[in-house]
Nucleic acid binder design. Sequence first.
RNA 1: GCGCCCUUAGCUCAACUGGAUAGAGUAUCUGACUUCGGAUCAGGCGGUUGGGGGUUCGAAUCCCUCAGGGCGCACCA
Length: 535
Amino acid sequence: MLVRMAAPDVDYVLERPRNPEHGDLATNVAMQLAPHLKRKPREIAQELVDAFEFPESFVSNVEIAGPGFINFKFGSHALLDVLVNICELGCDYGRADVGKGKSVNVEFVSANPTGPLHVGHGRGAALGDAVASLLEAMGHDVTREFYVNDAGLQVERLGLSLWARIQQLRGGEAEVPEGGYHGEYLIELAKRVIEHEGSEFADLPQEVGVGRCREIAVEDQRKEQTKDLADFRVKFDCVFSERELYAGDEITASLEALNKRGLTYESDGALWLRTSEWGDTKDRVLRKSDGTFTYFLPDIAYHRNKAGRHFDRAIDVWGADHHGYISRMRAALKGLGLEDSFFDVILVQLVKVMRDGSEVKFSKRTGDFVTLRALFEETGVDAARYFFLTRRGDAQFVFDVDLAKKQSDENPVYYVQYAHTRMAGIFRKAEVDPTQLDLEGADLSLLTEEDERALMKHLGLYPEMLVKAADTLEPYRVTIYLDELARLVNGWYHRHRVIGSPADLERARMILARAAQIVLSNGLNLLGVTAPERM
RNA sequence: GCGCCCUUAGCUCAACUGGAUAGAGUAUCUGACUUCGGAUCAGGCGGUUGGGGGUUCGAAUCCCUCAGGGCGCACCA
């Protein structure tokens, strides 16, 4: 407050120092102030410290260090309160209400309904789901949405491909078309179609048959994808079909809206959108000279539709190969009068798959690829999800199948889960109900060991870590936090006994163990990973 | 050719968005339980943060430049 009055534009931070010798909280305010006041940082720091009085139980020590840092050390109360707080809140510990009243649409995976989901979709699924959960934890009203491109050229080719397979089964000469889908799964589907519809299905007029094939194939693939995702523990609140946009005339309505605002023009027989006026590198075509729309227009209409559904925010998870698309979409939405903050994209780098030490090339067209289902059936859902989330989305990611298949301690998720089962094991062994611990009757000030202090400090950091992860849309922060927490928990567990300590110390440590268990469990659950009692 | 992202220990990644001695895991080496689960713990080895310049009290972080990698740059989806 004083600082603000002296120099309102000074940018200082209050942070948790990396080095424990620098206390629990530190500020660089004196150094930031120095150039403004033209005085030595340490002098300013001393003056600031003298000007304040701190209650002993919350701040036990203040010192000036280095070039002018002011370091605070917490009193016992601040830390011990954290434990009580965690145990009382339970699974609500870490939740906040900063996003209360705001609705967010998180759209992810959105795979074309033309084939099975592959590992790249898995990464998007894990990430999108975790981001959605993070925002929920912040109190947002979150809708998980899946967009189905069921109106374009790709599904047309899908229909043709299935039709060709059916003809082949009947001994016909048909070929899977150029750019069609060659995967085994369509042959299987073709067999089922003949079984269900009878062999005369193949004798339908080409046009009718292909149309039916398209319907059947899309429905079948949607069903498969939904099942894969459900088994991967990802559930969507809303599946949005591209056809709905056409059916509701939203495509033409969007076009008119853009026209009305004077954002379009005709050139070379095509209709262009002036995206370059909003930060794109060039203008983009909405309607080709042959009269058909580019894919850009339905995408605009779709996002306009999201705004129309009164979402305050739309977050898309995209493959990194679409990153060139961001600026034009942002430009289009800006042109429609939407706030910058409405639209965000999380980019996910495509996943490279290594097997037997070499890269597996995969292509949906040729049917040679690693499916998401194959992956999580080998590694387990917990390991696969956690694995995907330990990396930042925009970093390249090599998924070593052989390594992930090893159900060993090389999978980082086991380390965290193991810490949780150990805490659970304490209560199981002591035959104590962890939800019925006596918080008032315990003397927490007995928790004086250095690693107990460190553990409590880290437990107290959980809520602000969540805020940051939600703010930056970066779930990997949670995995890093959990890994660190598990390290502290395992170290503490190894060095100090809970059961068998003097009765009052045992009571206090039970509460610490309970708090650790709660935070481990909350963090894992947030990521869609189980927190097992036993392993 | 232009634009965006990336380059940190042998390998996989951190570093609280400009802070104090750049940290974990893994690999490798050495140690540790007669007890709550050893899927653990403690320690050693390992670094010119891709190179060079700049900005300031202070740079892995910001700016310029060079090198290497990825992805975009369609009247494709």
